[in-house]
Amino acid sequence: MRARAIGLKVAAVIFALAVLIVWQMAADARLISPVFFPSPTRTFAALGAMEERGDLWKPMAATAERMFYGWVLASLVGMVLGAAIARSGPVRAYLEPLLEFLRPLPASAIIPPAILFLGLTSKMAVTVIAFGALWPVLLGAYHGFRNVPPQLDEMAAAMRMGQVAFIWKVALPSALPDIFAGVRVSLAIALILAVVTEMQAAQSGLGFNILMAQRSFRSPELYAGIIVLGVLGLLTNQALMMAERRLLRWRTLTR
């Protein structure tokens, strides 16, 4: 059984390598024009050159920073709004139709008005990111706070817990798994919108750099940029999953 598992791991690595080798051979044989299909060696050489020129970490940090601010803003607002809508009937009655109209709006569709209001600035980018990343958190929080087990409600009432204390001490931990599910989707959306706003507003960052690489037909740099964006997405998601395991450890412990 163990040998089989190791064998499969090896096979997975071999498959990944095979993809790279086929890519290399196809590019070397010029099956597709090298203008838009550079080989992996050229791509990774471009990545190295970017690092040496200082074109790698700075734009990456710029993209990650905007993505992070927008995502944090969205998470906070989404959690508060979600909790309020889930726990209070009047708030739900006043806000739900408005939110139902805003929710299906493609997040990128608010880029034009955001540019009109805020110009081509970082503030505009963060606003758009926060708007787009808001909805999954809001829905997750709403769902989580709605489905707090009624026994907990009764227990808190018996202990004369105030509404704020109840939300903070009981409802929030109970809603946390749902919130995390939303927050993870939001993170992916935040990265997408960070890239989009950079391309649209010429903000420095990875998204802007790959657009520039395309305009000057530097395809190896374009591929390198796409790879870096993929790695950024992968790492942020992994980090969040680790945080989730940490914060939700009590869940597996109590079972």
């Binding site: 203008v35 838009f36 992916a188 990265l191 997408i192 890239v195 989009v196 391309m199 998204g207 790959i210 657009l211 690489a213 395309q214 037909f217 395809s219 374009l222 591929y223 940029g225 796409i226 790879i227 964006l229 993929g230 790695v231 997405g233 992968l234 998601n237």
Partner: peptide, 13 residues
């Protein structure tokens, strides 16, 4: 995890 929009420049190329 590669954001789809990162492919926009490539698709344009």
């Amino acid at each position: 995890p590669v954001p789809a929009v990162a492919l926009i420049p490539l698709a344009l190329l």
